[in-house]
Design a protein around this nucleic acid. Structure first.
Length: 315
DNA sequence: CCCAGACCCTGTAGGC
DNA sequence: TGCCTACAGGGTCTGG
């Protein structure tokens, strides 16, 4: 459930608190949270302990903290990726949280704990909490971005597209790629190699705002609709960010353990049985891609004529 | 190569 | 009260 706005709230919350902090000690309580780490937990602990955190960064739903060496002579160890550096990568998955605490506060379901020493803020504790263990932490090497612009990214993020709030996101490239897809529009929105940061909640909200049905074939989506849809994705992201993200239960919290307010602004997600805010008809929930899709069947209809035309072309 | 679907994973809610 | 099942869906992998 943490999607771009929620991960960005976490990144922004971490930034002033942990930048410049040293990882004094690291404890892995559940090794399954290291699924994306290439090596055993001892390797994770060894490579993280003593390192200094730089300012956290984000692409889509991936969050990472570039690491400085805590040892002045470590630059000469000849490590293969020394030139590009390493980062602590976090993905929150379905239920992950990064909570910033004092040294005496524990959280239930903490899978990884990092004790931090900050030159200004003193002793801190970073708890990585994750109920369903779809999230992960790992130490990863940084690679140059494919388009060579802006910065490097962790190797496991290299295949993830820039997100629509990234200043280097290429609208024209996205629209071309969308048109070339042979799939349906919600699948495309959730495809992190096409556009990143969108999950089930914001996909449903953006589709409703743009009056597009989730099952509309991408090839039959008009250019105007595609442009509108991208604009609505950005709009819903910006609004959610302003409200501190979406929380339904305590599955998503900011770094201080607080909930966001965007759940009060949802138009269709989780609103089945209530009235569509636009036309007053009932919002429904349908199964799609093993997930719930929330929509107004009146406002959001598959354009049959467009499908017929594309079917004729295909046939 | 591209796309669809299976799979992972567990606390919580609700039924009986 | 307690057991059982359904549910939530990111990202990755595999099969067609």
């Amino acid at each position: 459930m943490p999607e771009l706005p929620e991960v960005e709230v976490v990144r922004a919350g971490l930034q002033p608190a942990i930048t410049g902090a040293t990882a004094a000690s690291v404890t892995v309580f559940d090794e399954r949270s290291l699924r994306r780490h290439d090596g055993p937990s001892e390797d994770f602990v060894d490579r993280l302990t003593g390192r200094v955190f730089r300012a956290p960064e984000r692409r889509g739903k991936f969050l990472w903290i570039p690491l400085d060496s805590g040892h002045p002579d470590a630059r000469d160890t000849g490590a293969p990726n020394a030139s590009n550096g390493e980062a602590l990568v976090a993905h929150l998955g379905m239920s992950g949280q990064v909570l910033l605490r004092d040294r005496h506060t524990d959280d239930r379901l903490t899978r990884i704990r990092i004790e931090l020493d900050h030159p200004d803020h003193g002793a801190l504790r970073l708890n990585f909490v994750d109920q369903r263990i779809f999230g992960s932490m790992s130490i990863d090497s940084m690679l140059p971005t494919v388009d060579q612009r802006h910065r490097t990214v962790p190797s496991q993020v290299a295949h993830i597209a820039r997100d629509p709030l990234d200043p280097f996101f290429d609208d024209a490239k996205f629209l071309r790629a969308l048109k070339a897809k042979r799939t349906t529009v919600k699948r495309a929105l959730l495809d992190q190699t096409l556009i990143s940061g969108i999950g089930n909640i914001y996909a449903d909200e953006a589709l409703w705002a743009a009056r597009v049905h989730y099952n509309q074939p991408t090839e039959s989506l008009s250019r105007a609709k595609a442009i509108l849809l991208l604009a609505e994705v950005r709009a819903v992201f910006v609004k959610a960010l302003a409200e501190g993200g979406t929380s339904f239960d305590s599955q998503y919290l900011n770094v201080n353990g607080e909930s966001g307010y965007f759940s009060h602004s949802l138009n269709v997600y989780g609103q089945q049985g209530t009235e569509c805010p636009r036309c007053g008809r009932l919002v429904v929930r349908e199964q799609f891609m093993n997930r719930g899709s929330h929509l107004c069947r009146f406002c959001q209809r598959v354009r049959q004529s467009a499908i017929s035309r594309s079917a004729l072309r295909a046939g």
